[in-house]
Computed example of a mutant assay.
Amino acid sequence: MTTHTEPEPDVEPLLDVFKALANPVRLQVLRWLRDPVRHFPVERAIADPVEVGVCVTHIQEKTGLAQSTVSAYMAELQRAGLVRATRVGKWTHYKRDEARIAEFVAVLGRTL
């Protein structure tokens, strides 16, 4: 007999991360953000891509998707704790949250 139980407290954040990473474009963007200087046009950046992050416009150009789609994807990654957003003027920049990613990997290791 199988019974349905609520997920353990530390499993819920894992589910959010898995959902965010289940989309191939979001996964690719997270990989690109690991080395922003290599993957994005630094010469056109209005802020340091390593310190502040990459402008959503540059992410949109690289993916070829609509700006609204990219913004929704980045919001999903942010909700999962994988990236942080910083406003620079009217532009939003995204940077990986390495501490949260490391925490996710540790929880994953303890949970599975």
Rank of each mutant, 00 (worst) to 15 (best):
T86C: 14
L112K: 00
R34I: 07
K19T: 03
H4M: 00
T111C: 06
D97I: 07
T57N: 11
D16P: 09
H93R: 14
R84Y: 01
A22S: 10
K95L: 10
R26L: 03
E51V: 14
H58K: 12
F18S: 10
Q28F: 15
V88M: 09
L33Q: 09
A106Q: 06
H4S: 00
L14R: 04
G89A: 02
R44Y: 10
L82V: 09
V11C: 13
R110N: 09
V25E: 03
T5Q: 00
K95S: 14
E51S: 14
T111E: 05
K95R: 15
M1I: 13
E43V: 02
W91P: 01
T111L: 08
D16N: 14
L65W: 09
P7V: 07
G109F: 10
S68C: 06
V56M: 00
L30N: 15
L30S: 06
Q28I: 15
R84E: 00
R38W: 05
K90N: 09
R34D: 08
E51I: 10
K62D: 14
E6T: 06
R26H: 09
P41T: 15
L33Y: 06
R44M: 12
R38S: 11
P36N: 12
T69K: 00
Y94F: 11
R31H: 10
P7E: 11
P41C: 06
V70K: 02
A85E: 13
A22G: 03
D48L: 05
M74T: 11
V25L: 10
L14S: 03
E43F: 01
V37I: 05
R110S: 10
V42I: 03
M74W: 10
L30G: 12
D10E: 12
R31M: 03
V54P: 00
S68H: 12
T3H: 00
P13D: 09
E8T: 11
E8H: 10
R96E: 02
V50G: 09
V17L: 03
V52N: 03
A99K: 13
L112F: 00
W32H: 04
S68T: 05
G109W: 09
L30M: 09
